[in-house]
Design a protein around this nucleic acid. Structure first.
Lengths: 142, 142
DNA sequence: ATTATTTCTTGATATTTATCAAGTGTTTAT
DNA sequence: ATAAACACTTGATAAATATCAAGAAATAAT
């Protein structure tokens, strides 16, 4: 588990030889391969630094120990999880009813810097579209 | 927050006059409008019983009290959250790289009973497709 | 029982997006 | 500086899905 001080990271899964990026984050966010935490599998998702990064890392054992000995930490972890879940739920919801164009517009509005630091193919993957389609959406959005 | 003993429930959001179903659950699952818990808004998502249900409900205040006074409860809540998050993450991932046909097949394989108890339009919405498309996918899957 | 309402299906067409292929630009390595 | 690798764009075509419209089937209401 890590807190991102600076830089860009992505999470992806390798399916049929293809990388599916499903999360990209930068400063101020927490990143965890929670699925491997939960399912106790060694390397469930892949995490990759897209740029140079400064991170504050807590390993699994330390995290577990903190949860058991520091009630405040467990409480914090709980709040962090709840927020992450709520945000993911909203993201899922937007996947279900918005067009690619809308999702691109929203992302570009909220994180314009992303497009300068992260290869477009990763962004396309995260939006659930091909790089070609993203390339076209970018033009038609102006 | 409720534990479902029997029956079917769905969660949906009303967007531009349209209902978007994003979760359907039945016995053995927990259901919470977590977003309203987190963002403290009174009624963020809608929850509806699709069939008659038997539920075990814990209201917000009781939940908060339990979290503060019972360390074991907080620990349980944490695990529940982590699992929910991991499952949602996997669902999101499958949204990004699978076809509608595949998603339908998987759902039908894992929850065939769903199709006998829940209106197909809700299932279609949850799969991110129109009722017409679902109707066609069902035929071509045989 | 009959009507009314809702839900699901089917067909025809339009729109969106993927795929394939080729080309252009940009970074990296030697 | 040049070549190689990588990233992005553009065009043509195919596939998937949405939309619109109408009808059939199932459910609820009287």
């Amino acid at each position: 588990m890590a807190f991102i001080e600076s830089g860009y990271l992505r999470m992806f899964d390798l399916i049929d030889g293809k990388e599916i990026t499903f999360w990209i984050g930068s400063n101020g966010k927490f990143i965890t391969s929670l699925s491997s935490f939960v399912f106790e599998t060694p390397n469930f998702w892949n995490i990759q630094a897209v740029t140079d990064c400064t991170l504050h890392v807590i390993d699994r054992d330390t995290h577990s120990k903190l949860c058991k000995t520091q009630p405040k930490w467990l409480e914090f972890d709980n709040i962090l999880l709840a927020h992450s879940f709520a945000l993911l739920e909203q993201k899922m919801l937007s996947q279900l009813h918005t067009t690619s164009q809308q999702r691109f517009n929203t992302l570009f509005k909220e994180h314009p810097q992303l497009f300068n630091h992260v290869p477009l193919q990763y962004i396309a993957s995260m939006l659930g579209i091909t790089p070609e389609t993203l390339s076209r959406l970018r033009q038609h959005s102006n």
